[in-house]
């Protein structure tokens, strides 16, 4: 181990980690929002619309993230979509994660007992109100573990953004490696940072889950 190397590259690594967290957080939030919209459209739309959405889901889920990112970043300008690396990376993460989030929401909505929806219909509640007051609160609760799980997977997908020069942690680690040949040290730092991030997310997620399911657990 060479401490001097870390003194030199430390600030860049920490800054890179900041970008990693930023990309993960925004990618997760936007991807979840898009996924939620997709799941709701899927639930309430006529068949042709559902087919179109299904095709979108199949395409995005069926291709590697790296390929999607290259198409967006290098192919985008051909159709007038000229994005800097960071916005392109965020948009890429959003698109890439949306079908997975959509599927999580779709199955969570299906897990809401039909009887609880029917009870709302039976007193004359309108469908948008049912979505807001019954379907979303109950669906989000049952979706939470899977949402946290996929957002943890997403932390590690952010390293691919280094391929289009987003200055996140992987990008900094690659630079340090090639400039100093300290491959092992650089990648150990990467592993350590990711482990800390994932551990934090899963702890916060579990605590949040315990809080929102407090009233839903049958006690005898």
């Amino acid at each position: 181990m060479d401490i001097a190397v870390f003194q030199q590259y430390g600030p860049a690594l920490i800054k890179g980690f900041g970008y990693t967290i930023l990309c993960w957080a925004l990618g997760t939030v936007f991807g979840m929002m898009l996924g939620l919209v997709i799941a709701l459209i899927q639930r309430y739309s006529p068949r042709p619309v559902r087919w179109i959405i299904q095709i979108y889901i199949e395409i995005i889920r069926g291709t590697p993230f790296l390929v999607q990112l290259f198409v967006l970043y290098y192919g985008g300008p051909l159709v007038g979509l000229r994005l800097d690396a960071l916005p392109a990376g965020l948009l890429g993460l959003t698109i890439y994660s949306s079908p997975y989030f959509a599927e999580i929401f779709r199955s969570a909505f299906r897990a809401v007992p039909l009887g609880q929806i029917e009870a709302a219909r039976a007193i004359g509640m309108a469908e948008p109100t049912i979505i807001r007051r019954i379907l979303l609160p109950l669906g989000l609760v049952s979706a939470l573990p899977a949402l946290v799980n996929f957002s943890i997977i997403l932390t590690k997908e952010t390293v691919i953004l280094s391929m289009i020069t987003v200055p996140e942690l992987m990008y900094q680690v690659s630079r340090m490696s090639t400039e100093t040949f300290r491959y092992l040290e650089a990648n150990l730092v990467l592993a350590l940072f990711f482990w800390a991030l994932v551990e934090t997310i899963s702890r916060v997620g579990r605590r949040f889950e315990a809080r929102i399911t407090k009233h839903l657990i049958e006690r005898t």
């Binding site: 009887g115 029917e118 109950l138 839903l216």
Partner: peptide
């Protein structure tokens, strides 16, 4: 239909209370 349902109460076998 919602208008008509307002004046018809229904009670289910499984209660169907909203758990949250």
């Amino acid at each position: 239909l919602r208008e008509m349902r307002r004046s018809i109460g229904m009670v289910f076998q499984q209660f169907n209370l909203w758990p949250h």
